[in-house]
């Protein structure tokens, strides 16, 4: 079962195609990280799935129910990208009210548990108007999960939060994942996405450029595995032959007497290089393998 499935989903504002025919499938129970530069169309995409805006064309289904569907809203939790809270309502009242709007009324104990989860238990009876930005963000996350939804949309859940709160929110997301919830989150924090998401989609100019697990994404970029090998000095008689062989194996970047750096297309090539050096009786002191970071993949995209 797919928690989210979109077919040719498109949103146009005037002549500007913000989301361009996106086909996406998110399996139940996974955390999908949605990356993209500002204006890439991430929030527009989430807003279409959550009923905030209507798609221009295409279709989507949430939890196997064709959207837009008002009944399915009870089973989804949404933390919109920008939203103001009602300044005159306390954190507790917010949660109770919004759960009731979802037709899933909750007890005070449940509200307190959720507020504890997001680290707002001491502010439970404070009015949201007096909250800091970070506290508002936490309350927005709390309201998204108060009614125990199966599918959770989090639009930049940790932006603007202090380091401690970010760790707290990451733990919370992991906890929700362990409970079998499907989480769809956008973020600008690449480390965060790399750390907690099971799959990552990178959006560019309204389209999904790359999508897959971190390993799959790296596989696209295997040519950029950079290997630096520190070794004993190479005899001058061996040097031209070895240099020639290395050129055939990968793209040589740097060759010094006791160290060289090379780009290879797969991990197997690293083993081949090590074996070749052994043949020439060269001792290997250190091998540094630099796989592409999400940041490099993202920037390349």
């Amino acid at each position: 079962m797919f928690a989210i499935e979109t077919k040719q989903l498109t949103k146009t504002f005037g002549k500007n195609k913000v989301v361009d025919q996106i086909d996406l499938q998110v399996k139940s129970g996974e955390i999908l990280g949605f990356l993209g530069r500002n204006g890439a169309g991430k929030s527009t995409f989430i807003n279409m799935l959550t009923g905030i805006i209507q798609p221009s064309s295409g279709s989507y289904s949430l939890l196997d129910v064709q959207g837009p569907n008002d009944d399915i809203k009870k089973q989804i939790g949404v933390m919109p990208d920008y939203s103001a809270l009602n300044a005159s309502m306390t954190a507790m009242k917010h949660l109770k009210f919004l759960a009731a709007v979802s037709e899933k009324p909750v007890s005070d104990e449940r509200c307190m548990d959720i507020l504890k989860l997001v680290g707002l238990e001491e502010q439970a009876h404070k009015k949201a108007g007096k909250f800091s930005f970070g506290m508002k963000k936490k309350l927005a996350i709390a309201q998204a999960i108060i009614h125990d939804p199966q599918l959770i949309f989090l639009d930049e859940p940790t932006s603007g939060l202090d380091a401690e709160s970010v760790i707290h929110i990451h733990q919370l997301i992991q906890q929700l994942h362990q409970q079998g919830k499907t989480i769809f989150m956008t973020s600008h924090n690449l480390d965060e996405v790399e750390k907690i998401c099971s799959r990552i989609a990178i959006m560019k100019d309204g389209k999904i450029g790359k999508m897959g697990s971190m390993d799959e994404l790296r596989a696209y970029y295997q040519s950029t595995i950079t290997v630096t090998i520190k070794h004993s000095p190479i005899r001058s008689t061996h040097l031209p032959t070895l240099e020639q062989w290395l050129t055939l194996t990968g793209t040589q970047l740097e060759m010094k007497t006791s160290q060289f750096t090379i780009h290879v297309t797969s991990e197997k090539k690293i083993a081949e290089i090590i074996r070749a050096l052994g043949k020439y009786n060269i001792d290997i002191y250190r091998v540094d393998v630099n796989e592409p970071s999400l940041e490099e993949i993202f920037l390349d995209e």
């Binding site: 959550t50 009923g51 905030i52 008002d70 809203k73 009870k74 989804i76 949404v78 919109p80 920008y82 939203s83 103001a84 809270l85 009602n86 919004l98 709007v101 979802s102 037709e103 309201q143």
Partner: peptide
Amino acid sequence: HERTIRFLVTRTSRSA
């Protein structure tokens, strides 16, 4: 205007 409506439209129907 204040976008508090987003908390409602993502939970229930607009007619409601």
